[in-house]
Design a protein around this nucleic acid. Structure first.
Lengths: 340, 340
DNA sequence: ATGAAAGCGCTAACAT
DNA sequence: ATGTTAGCGCTTTCAT
């Protein structure tokens, strides 16, 4: 079936195996006519080079690793599929490694993985994109690295990011335009730095619109639904309730909606709610959640390109391009119901 | 760093490389004292065998492939992590391949993947577990195969499954016990056979309880939220409305809840709703969705064990063990509100 | 522009 | 119980 080796191809094409190798690796110094002969032989035999042999001889594995923290299943799967879409056609495979940011063993785990499997390049996703020890170890071993949405030490590796801060700013401005003045904010998990930027966007919008920042309106969450519920219970029990709550992710926003429903508050008439991420939950909730959609798959594709470029020894310039998120307006936000 | 080769270890331990190989591969015929010497040398040099060399010489890749259809991001990620948990400690890596059941190219894609990457074993998840062409191709190439929740041709490969049908039966009985007589059912995508069994469970429960099966209460969905909405609009517009709706998955159940909310129907007072899968959505909806949780991760772990057993040439007996699902009761189901 | 020869680091088959 | 000798199918180096 696929038993053909480089020798078979060489024989059929009437050249040496080195020439076949050159054709396959798109090296120069092959006459066009020779190249065609070889390509015909490859096609006829349905030849595929043996990866193990290539790796052994060339000291490369043709394998990339994706180390992911857990910002949600859809995020991870989207990243994963984006990477595959780009790396497979270029002959690279992907190995995935679920990592836990707080795990003391994480750095060791990752280091062993890349050393044992001779990984050619690594991609890190939030929150691990900002994990200093992992990054250092990778740099030390000189492994090509690319990060998705890092917030710190951006000069350490190529990366891709999205305009989270700007989107949050826009979302907040939109709420203000709807007449909201008391806008609650539920911040994300502190380990997850990229989500921290969302808070910055919120603050910037308030300042820009000369609305004082009221600390009682700001709660700390941890990205989970439950933390959203907890924060909402605090915010909605305030004497001066917010008329809108902006949660740093959809899961927490879903928690807010749950509490609002339980308290008999009408959304959006009595309380507007908005989230961030546009997870599937966002449009399955009632009412539909106004949120922000990141171009996750495109980020993954772009990042993979940057990684492969590095692996192939090409220069990658910093900073990488920034991809834009989009506000998705659904039914959970509406005009402020301000008592006059 | 990890530059030590088998020769270095052999030299340090004062034995031949073959003996080192034997120790590493846990072969017999090594004296205990020799084994210890070798192990000490391995530890001292932090030796890790080169995977490529092992693959090339042994004609094995130490790589498994997971071909997944798309039954939902959490399902996929759960499976993936379950597989990794078992295969990594045994020295196997995992390569993932998102496949589309309807894609005409799927069989070719999978075949090329296993041939080019010299995959040692393959796991199929629903709905691809029942994809005859893919299975045949794999069998033809003699690749060890394990399937998650197949419904057909079960003798073709080892597999793991859960008691979907029984769970659906139990869920339906539970609704009946709450006084429901008119129970709507929204069936899943016909390509996804495992979900079809859920319908069988529903029917069995009705028959058992001598409730006539009313075809107007049965709608065909496709596993999507939108199809759940569509089906709910039909069911809830019936002259003789159901008092409960059981959807074959959570996404469709979420669609039902959305429509009920829009129609101003109180859940569960006017309409009970239940789903299947216990996706994160289930407890983020308001009210919380009564549903069924499958032991996805355990299934994946069990399946991986079966796959590795096959790869190592051990006999695997059919049928494989059946793991049990659990009914999770939340607030979306309640007593039937039957007008007397 | 092309080829010959020497490994890459391991396993397998066969000694001993 | 342990060692020796050939490869596995490529890439690399160095000729030509």
């Amino acid at each position: 079936m696929i038993k053909a080796t480089i020798d078979d191809v060489a024989e059929l094409a009437g050249v040496s195996i080195k020439t076949v190798s050159r054709v396959f690796n798109k090296e120069s110094n092959v006459r066009a006519s020779t190249r065609e002969k070889v390509e015909a032989a490859i096609a006829e035999l349905n030849y595929r080079p043996n990866l193990s042999a290539r790796s052994l001889a060339g000291n490369k594995s043709f394998v990339l690793a994706l180390i992911y923290g857990h910002p949600g299943a859809h995020y991870v799967l989207d990243i994963q599929e984006g990477v595959l879409e780009v790396c497979r056609p270029q002959g690279y495979e992907l190995v995935v490694h679920p990592g836990v940011y707080q795990d003391k063993e994480l750095t060791k785990e990752v280091t062993e993985l890349i050393l044992e499997k001779r990984i050619d390049g690594v991609m890190l996703t939030p929150p691990i994109s900002d994990h200093a020890a992992v990054i250092n170890s990778l740099k030390k071993h000189n492994i090509p690295l690319v990060r998705v949405a890092p917030t710190e030490n951006k000069s350490l590796s190529p990366y891709v990011e999205t305009n989270d801060q700007e989107s949050s700013y826009d979302m907040t401005c939109q709420l203000i335009a709807l007449g909201h003045q008391r806008i609650g904010f539920i911040a994300g998990h502190p380990d997850h730095r990229a989500i921290g930027l969302r808070f910055e966007g919120y603050k910037a919008a308030l300042i820009e619109n000369q609305i004082p920042i009221d600390k009682t309106l700001i709660e700390q969450g941890d990205n989970s639904f439950e933390s959203g519920e907890k924060a909402a219970r605090v915010l909605l029990a305030l004497e001066q309730k917010p008329t809108a709550i902006f949660a740093a992710n959809d899961d927490m926003a879903a928690g807010v909606m749950m509490v609002a429903h339980q308290m008999g508050l009408k959304i959006p008439q009595q309380i507007s709610v908005s989230g961030f991420d546009d997870t599937p939950v966002a449009h399955q909730l009632w009412p539909g959640l106004t949120t922000i959609r990141q171009p996750i798959r495109q980020m993954a594709k772009k990042a993979t390109e940057l990684l492969l470029k590095q692996i192939k020894g090409k220069d990658v310039q910093l900073p990488a391009s920034i991809l834009s998120s989009t506000i998705i307006v659904r039914e959970s936000t509406g005009k402020a119901n301000v008592k006059k």
